[in-house]
């Protein structure tokens, strides 16, 4: 009996090792372990075994079963693993085929520049506010120390609706509107559309965008203005950016400055973009003129402030190397999808 069992076990084991797939393995299971399998048959033949030997035979049968089962499990794992590998081998894809893009909406480059700019100033504690695009002469000019008959008020530059109402030529009127509320301290940026009577060409548009900045508080200095814009420029154009302040004139600031940054294309070495100078002019700024403060109801002996104005299109055009301003208003998706 013992030999017979041993024989069955050996045959089972060799059948297992010869099995090449799950079906064969299953056949082996049925043939040896199934209800009508060889081991079952031995158990059925127990009645012919002497009663005192039965426990021993039973034990031997169980041992043989466990061994075969273990071997089956092992082989099954091997075959499964091999099958998975074969399956995956047949499932190779060409990963260089194009991806499926769920949607292809893109942000307008001007808006991206504005978002970047806002992010930096919001981080520095500035609130984003807006003002009307159709504005009173009083806010656009008078309160900004641009008196009647100033050349800047010339019809050549300004679109008028009536004598007193016009399309704002700058975002600076928002300054006056914010200061007039008298809520101190002021720390705002005011982005928006502005309008000037320029014919459309590669570098001009009758409608464009500015971002105005204004800080008013006790003890604000020109040094604060320099530090703020330097900080912004380094966040916006990169940490290596250098900033140069040049004296300039605006009616509503004194002292005033124009600001250049090191050319972000050549890093200041000089290239076509910066016309060889290494610098690019990006904005105008200055200390709020004491007359502007007092006309807006703020005591210039107590408070001081600085203001700056950034041309958004100019920055977007430079940053993305767009050579024609008209592209910004055409909305051709082949242009828009590049951003």
């Amino acid at each position: 009996m013992k030999e017979k069992l041993e024989q069955i076990k050996q045959r089972a084991l060799s059948s297992i090792s010869e099995a090449v797939d799950m079906d064969r393995l299953n056949d082996v299971r049925v043939a040896f372990l199934g209800k009508k399998g060889e081991l079952s048959r031995i158990l059925k033949g127990m009645k012919d075994v002497a009663p005192e030997d039965r426990p021993k035979v039973g034990q031997m049968v169980n041992e043989a079963r466990s061994r075969i089962e273990a071997e089956l499990e092992k082989e099954m794992a091997v075959i499964q693993k091999r099958m998975l590998e074969e399956k995956m081998k047949s499932e190779v894809i060409d990963v260089t085929l194009p991806g499926i893009r769920p949607a292809d909406g893109h942000r307008h480059p001007n808006q991206i520049a504005l978002d970047d700019l806002e992010r930096v100033f919001i981080g520095m504690g500035y609130e984003v506010v807006e003002g009307p695009e159709i504005e009173y002469d009083r806010y656009n000019f008078e309160l900004l120390n641009i008196p009647e008959n100033h050349p800047a008020k010339d019809e050549q530059d300004t679109f008028y609706i009536t004598k007193d109402i016009l399309l704002r030529t700058q975002t600076s009127p928002v300054q006056a509107r914010v200061m007039e509320t008298g809520v101190m301290p002021v720390r705002i940026i005011a982005p928006g559309r502005v309008f000037r009577s320029d014919e459309v060409d590669a570098t001009h548009s009758p409608s464009f965008h500015q971002v105005e900045g204004l800080v008013v508080d006790k003890g604000i200095t020109f040094a604060d203005l320099k530090g703020t814009l330097e900080q912004w420029a380094q966040e916006f154009f990169g940490p290596e950016t250098k900033v140069k302040f040049r004296p300039h004139h605006f009616p509503f600031t004194e002292p005033s400055a124009e600001v250049d940054v090191t050319c972000f294309k050549c890093g200041g070495k000089g290239c076509r973009m910066c016309k060889g100078s290494g610098w690019i002019e990006i904005l105008g700024c200055g200390m709020v003129h004491p007359k502007v403060l007092s006309d807006c109801g703020i005591d210039p002996e107590v408070y001081s402030g600085f203001a700056f104005g950034i041309g958004l299109e100019r920055i977007a055009l430079l940053k993305y190397e767009i050579d024609d301003m008209r592209l910004l208003y055409e909305n051709d998706v082949r242009f828009l999808k590049q951003f």
């Binding site: 301290p185 604060d224 302040f245």
Partner: peptide
């Protein structure tokens, strides 16, 4: 401004505004 431009805008120090802090927001 006359003082500033002959002292040199470049020579004016850089600082960030002090004083009451404000909340940046949209």
């Amino acid at each position: 401004e006359e003082v500033a431009r002959f002292f040199g805008y470049d020579n004016i120090p850089t600082r960030l505004p002090q004083g009451e802090s404000t909340i940046g927001k949209k």
